[in-house]
Simulated scan of single mutants.
Amino acid sequence: MNAADITALIEAANRAPSVHNIQPTRFRIDDERTITLLEDTSRRLFVGDPEGKDNQKSLGAAFEGLMLALAAHGFGADIEKLSGAGALRETARIRIATGGVADALEPLTHTRASYRGAFAPPTEADRSALAQIAETCPDLHILQGADALQHVGRVFDDASMEVLRAPAYRAELLSWMRLSPKHPDYERDGLNAAHMALSPIEAFGAGLVLGPKAFPALDSIGLAEPLISESGKVGSAAGVALFHRPTDEPEFETGRRFYRVWLEIERAGLALCPMSVLADVPHVAQRLMRENGIGSDRKLVTAFRIGRRPSTWKQPPRTRLPVSELIVRAA
């Protein structure tokens, strides 16, 4: 493969979901047949994810994206897992081989995107699609019905308030939010206002509400939770899916599966919005698993609210770092 081919592969791999769109995956081109995946350990949620588990999921998703892109061109790969250290930590080495078989999910990598606004009213076709997803993805436990969605919406708001009351967590969250098009990284990484389905006024308000002075003051008089509440958007969904995997599964492998599950939801014609705080707060995750009969041999990875985008919605351009910044030159 030539340099242009490998660059195209890396661009395809970087279409994979990345937690908070941090994009920690880097690619070292060792030769025309070998690519090493590395983690840029400076790009991590040091407060929200101190152990780097979300980064490992993001690396796994990027790896799966690379495998899908290779297979689309008739290639496979021999894979060597690595346990590196340092600022650029080696994670996996891919030696490109022949014999790949195209995957039906690969075309969906070009259009996959989260949707963070309120969904269109669910139809019977949407509910049928959810039933098909549940059959295809046994690691999704799907909740439907007004009462179930109202309950999980309340749990989500309570969990969000629990983490947002920590000033360091709020500051870190804001550092990855791009609330104004004037932000230098608005089109590069993080969560920008367009992708969060926020109007300019809503984006400005979010920055104020989550600020170091306003949030405690609003919280003290009971106004913070109504202002950050997502329960209405949860209630608009066709369903909420709890994504669970074996407890002992490495986070890298969980990330690979995470990407494929997301693509299955896209293939069903539906969109999703991650509700990661439900898994990030241990007692909340345990409660949801217990309430829904998910065994202790499983871990709650995340939750999604799933539905159909309104017909008037226009998907913003993908927010990604340029490929040139993802490639690490071999020493």
Rank of each mutant, 00 (worst) to 15 (best):
P24A: 09
G307S: 11
P122R: 05
A62N: 12
A217Y: 14
L149A: 15
F258L: 15
I228V: 11
A303S: 13
G145P: 11
D280V: 02
S160Y: 02
R245T: 15
M289N: 05
L38D: 01
R43E: 07
G190V: 05
P212N: 11
D219N: 15
A16G: 11
F156A: 02
R267V: 07
A224R: 00
G207K: 09
R287N: 02
T41V: 15
E80I: 06
P216E: 13
S229P: 05
L9P: 02
T36P: 05
D31T: 05
C273M: 08
G153E: 00
S231N: 07
I96C: 03
R89N: 10
L321Q: 03
F215V: 05
E11F: 04
L270R: 01
R257N: 13
L326E: 00
L198G: 00
Q23H: 07
S160F: 01
R93D: 04
Y259E: 12
E64D: 14
A168I: 04
A268Q: 11
G295M: 06
D147L: 14
L288W: 00
A134N: 06
P138A: 01
S220V: 15
G222T: 12
A97Y: 12
I10N: 03
A168D: 11
A271G: 10
P181Q: 01
W176Y: 11
P121E: 08
A238W: 05
K213Y: 08
L326V: 02
F204H: 13
E172M: 04
L272N: 03
R170S: 09
P184H: 11
A193I: 06
G99H: 14
R267M: 10
G239F: 00
F243V: 02
D103T: 09
E135C: 10
T7A: 11
L38G: 01
A285P: 04
S199W: 07
G145V: 09
P50C: 14
S175E: 03
H110I: 14
E32G: 11
E162V: 01
